[in-house]
Design a protein around this nucleic acid. Structure first.
Lengths: 202, 202, 202, 202
DNA sequence: AATGAATGAGGGTTCATTCAT
DNA sequence: AATGAATGAACCCTCATTCAT
């Protein structure tokens, strides 16, 4: 029955993943999750202490990695040299290489953690990430163009960078396509940022 | 009584606007709307047939304009010449001028229509808009770089363009700041797009 | 419908009174309360915010008096002279007279407050009252017999004094009987206390 | 296995004892009992048919003694001579001597039987005991003061006598203290009773 | 116009018990 | 002997909506 048990538990997890992904934590319904998983409400609570416990299972691994990243991102090798490449047309290949190591780790758990966690204790993860990006953005602006006077755009750009990546992950299962699109998307942001602060001689 | 009636109706509308904006259609609670409006649940149904009817009022004008725009956008004067300006550093001023006529019309109703309508019959508006943008994006790509091979990025970029504008509208009440940020944001997208398809001689 | 409304509300209150009195707060079932009141669960929440709100209505008046009593009991005329009456056989009439002013105020609300409130914010009321009695008991012992060496009995006697009065109130609706029994019961406690500490020349 | 079995069974019994004692039969949770006992819900039902069966084990011995006592109490040597001791100040020592034989037998099982059995078939035990006491009380009254006209107080006094002893047992683990307090408490009741019916020449 | 009473479905959760392994 | 999966009823509570007054 060990097998049987795991079957049901996995069915609940799978079903919960789908439900949380589609509706977010708060709108997700345990009754619907268990029905889709082919079991009963009472049985759900044999596997999980409560709604949030199921959510946590879906998100735990990604959350641990996330926390590690938040705490150590300044020690991690930074791709600052990217910006110093004289010809931005060469960014793509370098960026693609860089991302090839990390994008395969971006799974459904990460999407749920960042985009479906309102109402849980994980709700703030996306904000932390956005703030990280924003700080880099501001640093970057100050380095390349002290006179740029619409610095508030950093709030939007940072959040949109994250949201865009989430959307790509949501809508593309093919790993290669996923990788290609994220590369293009970040490239788009780099070019946009450089252009915005007047760093190109068009 | 007519006066009183409008007062109540407007109070409900104002309160509903706030609730829908904050929580979205589905999570919004009529009980909370009427409490905040200083009236009662029963009275709500004297003014509106149901939850969606209130939503519709909040969104009607913007929706009509939206439909008109969707149906006539190909007849509307297009800012294509923008792209033909040789020096992108001059885009900002032209774009700003262009937007100064339209941004003041972007109000709360538009945000609600595009970003808070899940669960209503308006849920698809944002998608239609996104598709419009996407089609322009694709046209543009085909015009300037037939070989660009990550055309799928158009889905993301188009949706992100809309979402970013919505975020700016949500978070900035000051009209000038709003206008400036949207200008910068669209500029950012234009530059990013051009860069992505290799249209700059960096 | 004002009348109708009060009917239902009163029916719920009456039914809740019965349920709380019989089962205590935690075991009481809203479903049973509303069924007994002839209405539905949903409707219950039109009259009361939640289970505890109904409880509070049942208990509010008594609680206010209770708080007033706790804060002011030391200013209230104390029946200490009772103890100084040389012949305890005369206590009964004095005590009865004293109680005749207060016992009529002891209603069902008081029983619920003191004896059915576990699980609510009122749960500690009985304890406060018991402690008051206990302190008086200890004062009394120290005044009349410093050598009495089973002072711990005060815990039990104090709580039992309160519990006994609650039981009398629970089981007797007739005001005169109620008054007579409480008189006898307190008399019993006074005699017991005096006897215990050896204050009688039997 | 027999050894292991008893270990588990005893762990459940110990854990159940604690849970029933603290919460009473109805509020007690089998889930919490087995968790505290370090076993599982399924295994519980290998040892006990159901919740009440565990309760019965905890209470069985005391219940048998109780039934024996109820059926034979009139044949048991009665401490009536106590009352005939001319000087009540001498009661304490005689009573203490009497109780020293019986109080050590008052264990947790008795508390549970009398005070935690609502919802079980044992629920009426306390009442039977109370009625016994009450009958003695009435006999006593009729013997010493035929004119006493608040005979209904016997209901309360009898129940309170039992409840007080239960409280002492609940709150005191030290055998000597337990014995002393019960002695004082019953003395208190004897004095109170005698005083109430005017049998003292104060 | 205004009130809020009434309904029934659904929300998350706990429970004692049964049963297959 | 031991596990815990499975069930179904019950717990308190919120919801949008209807309706009588």
């Amino acid at each position: 029955m060990q097998i049987k048990k795991d079957e049901v538990k996995n069915a609940i997890i799978k079903s919960g993943e789908k439900e949380f992904l589609e509706k977010g934590y708060e709108k997700a319904s345990i009754r619907k999750i268990v029905k889709q998983a082919g079991t009963t409400i009472g049985n759900f609570y044999n596997y999980f202490n409560n709604k949030e416990a199921l959510f946590e299972v879906l998100v735990k691994d990604e959350y641990d990695k996330f926390i590690y990243f938040i705490h150590n991102h300044d020690k991690i090798e930074r791709p600052d040299y990217l910006w110093q490449i004289s010809n931005p047309s060469k960014w793509r290949v370098v960026l693609s290489e860089l991302l090839s190591k990390v994008v395969p780790n971006f799974g459904i758990g990460l999407i749920i953690l960042l985009d479906c966690s309102e109402g849980t204790k994980f709700a703030n993860c996306k904000n932390e990430l956005v703030n990280l990006i924003k700080n880099h953005f501001i640093e970057h602006i100050e380095k390349y163009n002290k006179e740029y006077n619409s610095i508030e755009i950093g709030d939007i750009i940072s959040e949109q960078l994250i949201d865009g990546i989430i959307k790509i992950l949501r809508n593309n299962n093919n790993p290669d396509l996923k990788h290609k699109l994220i590369t293009e998307y970040i490239l788009f942001y780099m070019i946009g940022t450089m252009g915005l602060i007047g760093n190109f001689n068009f």
